[in-house]
Design a protein around this nucleic acid. Structure first.
Lengths: 200, 200, 200, 200
DNA sequence: GATGAATGAGTCTTCATTCAT
DNA sequence: AATGAATGAAGACTCATTCAT
């Protein structure tokens, strides 16, 4: 098969995935019907099914894609030089999540909530998400190790726990802003600072 | 059958809600059919529908109940004397959430994830959840005010932001432990401490 | 059993029938649920079922009642002295039907259409209605005989056919005014006159 | 399955409509279940629903079709040359209705009664039927104008009222023959004649 | 390969009727 | 005798998936 065909295949896949994403976000995972996606994609039912064996695969692919896109957005933040401080990293990550959420009608936060819910039922999806979050947290652990090295008297700090705490803050930011809608990256930065000062 | 007593009505309602909760948790909100709930409740379809007008009401009631139960569990923590410190409050809240999650096979965290997802589609549910979280965060603001008073040099701390940050930590704990399953209340306590020390 | 009890029974029956009539008219025969009637009657389900074995009996009774009421309204017209002319009788009958239709929200024409439709399915109802219409047409035949006697040269007139024609006019008036709503008794009188003149 | 031809689509539609008509007539409009129609049509539920969005549309289409078929049967009678007399037109119309009623097991009169009843509840259906009868009556008015022109001394005749009277006779014929079953076109012709003679 | 019509098991919900209290 | 909660068999309609053309 010539190369064009492969490109076309990839384009078609992206086209379907895009349609699925839009629908999922607007209607939720279960309220979206295959027909919605088929219509939105502009292809035929048979065509869609030739790219994805079933609805659950489409869901998995959509969530995976959004996770991958997010990774591409966030990973560079770990490699800037000089490395970002904890406060700065948290602010940038949450800011990126918030910014990504506004893009072209795709709200990453909604997709995240939908995905978490679906992961309760779908083993494959849960495994995929788990893997992604593990990898992400591993990067946070690495970053924490860096900060630790630079901190005199930081030997007793658990980089694992710091990573878990940062991840909790990020995920909690996603939920809180999706449900309540009145949280900005700066709030966490200020709150974290306040919390430290209140503890003395 | 003559008029049923109020207690019996309430008991029946609870019986149905209990069945629904069990099913929702096992299967997810949409994958659970009314028939599942009907069978699990041990009642007839008509009986279930005489207590709840439809499936969405059952979902709303199930989520509301779990939210109410959680409130009952967590609210007392704000009233202990002497008041808990921020670290202690966070640890106790997350510990209660984790403990509640293990109770009688009901996992509050799963219900929470399912509810958040459903709230994207169901306006009534979203309003209910929003109200609950607003009230909860207001209590956190109050607590932060207390801490602020006791902190010399704490005047510039934003209690709003502290509350948002604590809520983010709690919600993030729920997500992280539901999806990844390897987070304990102590991790957040230690991580928050480490974070403060790394910041200098 | 004392007399009071019987009276009470009759009153209850009427109360139920009244409720049924109102519902049937507003919603149609099938769209009306037993619960609608029960609620409208102010009695309990059991009470209603102790007076009428089932919904079809209620329908039969409601139609029969309306037919009976109509009879009471129309029959006297055949006994007035001196007897009414054909034109006058037709006008008075249709006028009574129209007037009855306006009474207290009960529209006899609607009940008639509903009853005819139901009679297609319900043998008992069909038999009842058939009997009523036969009796009514027999009265028309009698009236036609009278007119015939008074008409010189009327020997060859078929009183049966005159009666069928008058009945067709009355029933057609009911349908036309129920569906189209722009027919008055006078129209038929004038139309019949015109028809005669056009025939030469 | 590739795109189906227009003829095939129309044939399928007719097939379903035919099944619906048969069922409606046998069982009545509401007693007929979608499953009855689906079974009778030989198609699947999904197929039927892809041609008709719901039961009420099927009812509307069935009634509309029967009305259209009837129009095709009756309209030519208004265009014969030389024009039919009032008596003749009435006889031919009723005769056609009666004949149509016998065709292939479809009884137009029953459909008419069912439709009138349903029109009480269904606005769309009522509007459709009203439109049809208005058009039909307009043709009767036209015919009456013709008769009027040919009648010396006919100037004062109201063609509107003549049309309303003729329509009442036709509709009344339908009801009377459907419910009582002992009326023939000739009866009306003779009765109308007798009525004129009795009036002097 | 692509199409989209067709499938049919499955969903939520209703409602005439019963019968325990 | 009266009540009204409970029953459960239908009913209308949906939708992921297939496969004839």
């Amino acid at each position: 098969m010539p190369k064009i065909s492969d490109e076309k295949r990839a384009a078609r896949r992206a086209q379907i995935l895009n349609a699925a994403w839009t629908c999922f976000q607007k209607e939720g995972l279960h309220a979206t019907t295959m027909d919605d996606i088929i219509k939105a994609s502009g292809l035929s039912a048979g065509a869609v099914y030739s790219y994805f064996p079933g609805k659950s695969d489409l869901i998995l692919a959509a969530v995976t894609t959004s996770l991958t896109d997010l990774t591409a957005l966030v990973l560079p933040l770990f490699s800037v030089s000089p490395p970002l401080s904890e406060t700065e990293l948290l602010r940038q990550i949450t800011a990126n999540v918030a910014r990504f959420s506004m893009r072209e009608g795709f709200d990453l936060r909604r997709i995240a909530l939908l995905g978490w819910s679906e992961a309760q039922r779908d083993d494959k999806l849960r495994a995929t998400m788990n893997g992604f979050y593990q990898a992400f947290r591993a990067r946070l652990v690495q970053a924490a190790e860096e900060w630790k090295k630079r901190t005199p008297d930081g030997a007793s700090v658990s980089e694992e726990d710091v990573a878990k705490t940062l991840l909790a803050l990020i995920l909690g930011f996603v939920v809180q802003s999706a449900i309540m809608g009145d949280v900005e990256p700066e709030n966490l930065e200020s709150g974290l600072d306040g919390l430290a000062r209140l503890r003395g």
